[in-house]
Design a protein around this nucleic acid. Structure first.
Length: 107
DNA sequence: AAGGTGACTAACA
DNA sequence: ATGTTAGCCACCT
C-alpha cells in the first residue's frame, strides 16, 4: 500500500488544493521539497487509486494546459469537472487551457 | 540489476 | 513566436 514518502506528500498536497483553484506539477513538486520532481508528480497522478478522493483534475502543467494522456482520465472529463467547480476552461481547438493568473492556487 | 519511460520545465536556436 | 534539447528522478519491465 505504502509507495514512497514522496508519493504520500504528493497526494497529501494535491488534496489541499482548494475547489475552484488549480496547481501546476512543478508547484506540487516544489511544495514536496523536490523542485525537480514535476514528472514524478505526473506519474503519481497517473497511477492514482480510483477511490483515493484525490482531486487529480486540479493539477495541470505550467502553461495552464490540461496534459493528461491517461485513457481513464481524459482531458474532456478533466475539463468538465473543473468547469463544474467554477474554473473557466477554454477549449482552444481541442486544447483545454486555464488562466493561471486567475485560478492558480497560491498557498 | 539496469535501462527505459513520462499527466514536466526551463533553456536554447 | 514556435520547435528542439537536455536535465530531471521515482517507477516499471
Amino acid at each position: 500500500m505504502k509507495k514512497s514518502n514522496l508519493y504520500q506528500k504528493i497526494y497529501y498536497l494535491t488534496k489541499k488544493i482548494p475547489r475552484g483553484k488549480v496547481a501546476t506539477y512543478g508547484q506540487i513538486a516544489a511544495l514536496c521539497g523536490s523542485p525537480r520532481a514535476a514528472r514524478i508528480v505526473g506519474y503519481a497522478l497517473h497511477i492514482i487509486p480510483e477511490n483515493s478522493q484525490i482531486p487529480w483534475q486540479r493539477v495541470i502543467n505550467r502553461q495552464g494546459i490540461i496534459s493528461t494522456t491517461c485513457f481513464e482520465h481524459p482531458p474532456t472529463l478533466q475539463a468538465d469537472i473543473l468547469k463544474s467547480e467554477g474554473v473557466e476552461v477554454n477549449n482552444h481547438k481541442g486544447v483545454f487551457q486555464i488562466d493561471l493568473k486567475k485560478y492558480l492556487w497560491r498557498p
